[in-house]
Amino acid sequence: MTAQAELEADQTETMTVREAIREALREEMRRDEDVYVMGEDVGRFGGVLEVTGDLFEEFGEERVRDTPIAEAGFVGAATGAAATGTRPVVEIMFSDFMGVSMEQTMNQMAKMRYMFGGKTEMPVTVRTTEGGGMGAASQHSGTVHAWIAHFPGLKAVAPGTAASAKGLTKAAIRSDDPVFIFENKMIYEREGEVPTDEDFTVPLGEASVEREGADVTVVATQRLVGESLDVAADLEGDVSVEVIDPQSLYPLDTDTITDSIGKTGRLVVADESPLSYGIHAEVATRVVENAFYSLDAPIQRVGTPDTHMPFSPPLEQEVLPDGDGVRAAIERIT
């Protein structure tokens, strides 16, 4: 690499998570004509949470397609389109709506390559929003990524920073496998430094150590990455906290997490999904399987206590996992 290229590769720009995803879509649509976006109100309207924004102006209605409100139909169509040579990027407005399209997701998209003995590619990307915090109540606030991470044949990513939002989105679109991107709607305005190199991607299955520490490892996803970093900064001097963003839920970077436990001996898993049978359990199990003798304290989980997301603000705040919960978990084991 020339000195000039190296300099360019290192350049970053400050942008929000929302802008980072939009730029990832823009760059990939410019790079590959077979990439197009489809979903409810993604076109002229720009997306209900404004992620697709001005893409319609640049690419037009063929490549930024408004669909009927019919998730089974358009997720199924994206599956058939991906099997026959194009690379659709589908937006499901709220992840709670994924139930409508689950048949096409679990029985077609996830299984076709395998059932056909590998004789099809499935380059489809599904973006959707998750999370409580805006008073949207139970049918617009769910965190369901464990469904997809659990289901064989699908890959799942969940960005926590602007850089990973851009890098994961680009990697997902370039992948020949179905990849779901779970965007927490409360961090769309979160800013961060994002590499400007058009070939910057975050490979699927690679975690990011967002802060190094020696006493306890916090594996945090989505909104809880930033909140855990704030807690780590607050505790500096008392407790040295390592914060890892797995970035990719499936495949999951077991090595980065277990290496960290080898150093700290303590684990907190912070993820907004319901506590039972989910991401927390998977991270904990991998640590127990691979780093059991390094553990010095019981593993702690921070998540939604198996309720739906209620509407009224005091109720929502009661069940929504946050930095205070991460801090309390750290304090219990250090």
Partner: peptide, 18 residues
């Protein structure tokens, strides 16, 4: 799955059209 083929054909038709 009964009824799963039509969405896939619609998608293949989308690729053809695109």
């Amino acid at each position: 799955i009964v009824g799963a083929g039509p969405p896939l054909a619609t998608g293949a038709a989308l690729t053809i059209d695109y």
